[in-house]
Write a protein that binds this DNA or RNA. Structure first.
Length: 873
RNA sequence: GGGUGCUUAGCUCAGUUGGUUAGAGCGUCUGGUUUACACCCAGAAGGUCGGGGGUUCGACUCCCUCAGCACCCACCA
């Protein structure tokens, strides 16, 4: 009794159990083979509180393709999964939840609040873990990590201590981006810019008139800057002036600075060092002190007199008003500018000076052999130790790295790695280390207070590739699996994360974190816009799609049609299209299973004896070539090309031609099964579920997951047979086309007479040709008489007559042939000019010239035949 | 202001170092239950490859330029 499979593939029925089998098999955990280079990917850790979105889904698909491919190639392959505590993001989320109950984190206090966050994360971490599984990710769950694991925290503290001792981490009173809502500093790249309509206030400023967007900062001004070469102000440079203000006169120094643009405004800039990055730097260069007037809540400080306590915005209005009354306001213009806002919550950033911890990116350091962090990070990409795909992102990376300023790493939030610095309660001496020190180095006192701040979340994720492997302990894992092979992530976090990993890893381990960075594009909606839940019509939830179309279909829809670094559009019809492909695979397998006997299923394929017919050779040849291309495509990170190539060969060549052709005399179940299995292996990295299911249905006891990826075999080249079969398919297609043109009923069988110089191979394929072109009589001769009242098809070296008698409309035929003649005439004319062109003949490769000559010959033969025919009609 | 990418059939996109009468999927049209599949099969229509210039024997492909779209970076107050 032969087996029977259901008519449609139901992904939902199989996926979960297949995943469980894979996971239980232990094959996701690699075996360390000494001397064999492993393939390693560190999974970019999703936020522990996250829900799986398309960004995750596409990254998981890509990484799984690579991991499965390498595993099948026999490389010890490790894909290490994990989650990130996502400091600010998580804290915000929990704060929002608490706010609904009317509770703030301060009401709870640090300890209780952290417990709330921990509980919350514990729940949601499980969710994201299972969603990662849903995508079919073949990652090693035994090595799963979390950025707040003890081991990873140890790595964080160790690196902090190393950097502190090397003088790369310092505490400084510098200007930082401050989010008054999050109550924390932000790194430069955590600031977003929003186009805003604002005002430009022209104010009378002692001897100057100058323009500002923030009149309230006047209270913190300590200087006026002008361009050194600006004639208008030349004599004033270095002098001090008393400026009338809303709170009385104050003194400013006039300084010269090249950054001032003499063209803008009046060419003079008021300098507020404590609340503007540009001003802070001008002040530093010119040795000017700052005056802080805005506090961490975004409100005016005590030193602002009657304005104290106002928000900056309130103060701006009040001050503008007062200045106007005092006659200090010259004019107010509309002004569009970019407002800096917090990337997490959208609140306006207040730049302010604050005591914070910084990483010095410019300081030369012994551990880096006299280079700075910045120099080292640039070097490893420049010298090719790290390769970025696509290459153009090198430029972006260099530009960012070259302009990197000291990195502010302290955050005033509670959720995260606490800064491992301890202050002596007695003398205030700083001690750095994971553990609270026994007694103070300086005063021998034994009571300490830990720095209340936590570290930037990217400080810990910057260590991800090696902290997850057990560093700083000298573990086997670290020795064997680091540096990792590929970092696969979106280009949007090149700076946030990739650059920081390079910086931190080269410093801490003296190794690069990864050899290749593969940057994928972002998934956009049908209109090319960012997907967002606020646009439910176009926003796609991967989990819904998995339910509806299956994981395999979703994976393909995100892979095919995308090129590295370029965004890709996704919409439901596209996913449905790939679901159809999955079903096509299922059904061709269904067909195969129906045609395979127990014996066939058990048969071990031997190319020497099992490949018999021309058709077999043709199929095997095509497959062999596909194997070659697929391997190359995957190795070169051209996943879309690989996927669509397989799609095409499978559907068109295997299903539409080979399967159909071989339904008759040339049935060879063994080759059918073998071909199908090669396809399954090629497809498995892309669509692991359906291929695994079918693999089992074909009677295999092993798991496809653990099978060997096919290799190109020079011995399986059958170029001649391929050419023959190409003729066969062409004959069939042409007859079908002619039938449609003439309007022969689909079911009606007709006669055909074929003249060919090599009749034998056509004769050999007479049965499939007749069946597929619906012929009841096929004559094949070397040559013969022209047949009247027949549809005449002229192919290179082959002529086909379909004697359809009355069905043929002579006038219509004539028109059609005339049109074709015209086409051919322009075509041959083009070829002739080309071939008589000396430049072409002298410069073009000989093979191309021959090819063109052959084309011309074929076209001319056909042309004369058609011309003769049109006369006879 | 600097940089990057994109512009190819109605829609979404391929087109790898310059050499095919420019390809696919979806959609459209005409037909179709034949040893799996209507989530299917057979056939067809549809493009002067954004505009202009140049290099070359030859340009969708390389260079210049213009235009539109998108994104990234930047302290013009």
């Amino acid at each position: 009794m032969k087996k029977q499979l259901p008519k449609t593939y139901n992904a939902q029925k199989y996926e979960d159990s297949i995943y469980k089998k894979w996971e239980d098999s232990g094959l996701f955990s690699p075996e360390m083979k000494k001397g064999k280079k492993p393939f390693v990917i560190s999974m970019p850790p999703p936020n522990a509180t996250g829900q799986l979105h398309l960004g995750h889904a596409s990254m998981l698909a890509l990484q799984d393709i690579m991991t499965r491919y390498h595993r099948m190639k026999g490389d010890p392959s490790l894909w290490l999964p994990g989650t990130d505590h996502a400091a600010i993001a998580t804290q915000n989320k929990v704060e929002q939840l608490l706010a609904k109950k009317g509770v703030s984190r301060h009401d709870l206090g640090r300890t209780k609040f952290l417990q709330e966050v921990k509980d919350f994360v514990e729940d949601s971490r499980g969710t994201i873990r299972n969603q990662i599984r849903k995508m079919g990710s073949s990652c090693d769950w035994n090595r799963e990590r979390y950025t707040l694991d003890p081991g990873l925290s140890k790595a964080v503290n160790t690196v902090f201590e190393m950097m502190y001792k090397d003088g790369l981490i310092y505490k400084g009173d510098r200007i930082v981006n401050w989010c008054p809502r999050c109550n924390s500093t932000l790194a430069d790249d955590e600031v977003d810019y929003k186009d805003t309509k604002g005002k430009l206030y022209w104010i009378k400023y002692g001897p100057f008139v100058l323009a500002t967007t923030r009149p309230e900062t006047k209270l913190g001004d300590t200087a006026v800057a002008v361009h050194p070469k600006d004639k208008r102000y030349k004599d004033m440079i270095g002098k001090k002036y008393m400026i009338p203000g809303v709170l009385g006169d104050f003194e400013v120094t006039v300084v010269a600075d090249r950054e001032v643009d003499p063209e803008f405004g009046s060419g003079a800039v008021k300098v507020t060092p404590s609340h503007s990055f540009a001003d802070f730097e001008i002040a530093q260069r010119n040795n000017i002190k700052g005056k802080k007037i805005i506090n961490e809540e975004g409100r005016m400080m005590e030193n602002c007199g009657k304005y104290a306590g106002l928000t900056t915005e309130e103060c701006r209005k009040a001050i503008a008003n007062d200045m106007d009354k005092m006659g200090l306001m010259e004019k107010i213009e509309d002004y569009d500018h970019k407002l800096s806002v917090c990337y997490r919550c959208g609140t306006t950033i207040e730049p302010l000076t604050s005591k914070q911890w910084f990483v010095d990116v410019n300081k030369k350091c012994k551990r880096l052999k006299g280079k700075s962090l910045k120099e080292k990070s640039l070097e490893v990409v420049k010298d090719g130790s790290i390769k970025i795909v696509p290459e153009r992102f090198n430029k972006t990376y260099f530009h960012w790295m070259e302009n990197l300023r000291d990195w502010c790493i302290s955050r005033q939030i509670w959720w995260g790695h606490r800064i491992p610095v301890w202050y002596c309660k007695d003398c205030g001496e700083e001690h750095v280390g994971e553990e609270k020190p026994g007694k103070c180095n300086k005063c021998k006192h034994n009571e300490f207070k830990q720095d209340p701040d936590t570290l930037d979340t990217w400080f810990s994720s910057g260590l991800w590739t090696f902290s997850t492997l057990g560093w700083p302990d000298k573990t086997e894992d670290f020795k064997y699996f680091h540096p990792t092979s590929v970092m696969e992530t979106g280009y949007d976090i090149l700076f946030f994360w990739v650059a920081r990993m390079i910086l931190m890893t080269t410093y801490a381990t003296d190794e690069v974190p990864f050899e290749t960075v593969y940057l994928h594009g972002l998934i956009r909606d049908k209109n090319g816009e960012k997907m967002s839940k606020s646009k439910p019509e176009t926003c796609i939830d991967p989990l819904d799609m998995i339910k509806k179309y299956g994981t395999d279909a979703l994976r393909l829809s995100m892979i095919i049609g995308g090129t590295p670094g370029n965004d890709i559009r996704l919409y439901e019809e596209k996913i449905a299209g790939y679901r159809n492909f999955i079903n096509k695979i299922w059904n061709s397998s269904r067909f195969a299973v129906m045609n395979l006997s127990e014996e066939d299923l058990a048969h071990k394929f031997d190319p020497k004896t099992d490949i018999k017919t021309t058709m077999d050779k043709w199929m095997i040849h095509r497959l062999n070539m596909l194997v070659k291309r697929t391997t190359e495509n995957i190795e070169k990170y051209r996943f879309s090309d690989a996927g669509s190539d397989i799609y095409d060969v499978f559907w068109t060549h295997f299903c539409d031609w080979y399967l159909e052709l071989s339904k008759g005399d040339f049935k060879n179940p063994v080759v059918l099964k073998y071909s199908l299995e090669i396809f399954l292996k090629l497809m498995h990295p892309f669509i692991p579920f359906v291929t695994e299911v079918i693999w089992k249905e074909l009677g295999n006891k092993t798991m496809l997951l653990a099978e060997t990826f096919p290799e190109y075999d020079e011995k399986l080249k059958y170029t001649k047979h391929e050419r023959w079969m190409e003729r066969v398919t062409m004959i069939i297609s042409e007859i079908r086309k002619a039938r449609a043109e003439v309007g022969v009923e689909p079911a009606k069988k007709i006669k055909a007479i074929i003249y060919s110089k090599e009749p034998s191979f056509i004769l050999e394929q007479a049965e499939p040709i007749s069946r597929m072109a619906r012929l009841d009589e096929l004559t094949v001769e070397k040559d013969g008489q022209k047949i009247k009242k027949a549809k005449h098809i002229i192919l290179p070296g082959i002529e086909i007559y379909l004697p359809l008698e009355d069905m043929i409309d002579a006038d219509k035929e004539k028109d059609r042939i005339k049109k074709e003649i015209d086409n051919l005439k322009t075509y041959t004319k083009g070829l002739k000019t080309k071939l008589s062109n000396k430049g072409f003949v002298n410069n073009a490769p000989p093979a191309l010239i021959d090819q063109e000559k052959m084309k011309l010959e074929e076209a001319e033969t056909k042309l004369t035949k058609l011309q003769k025919e049109v006369k006879d009609l």
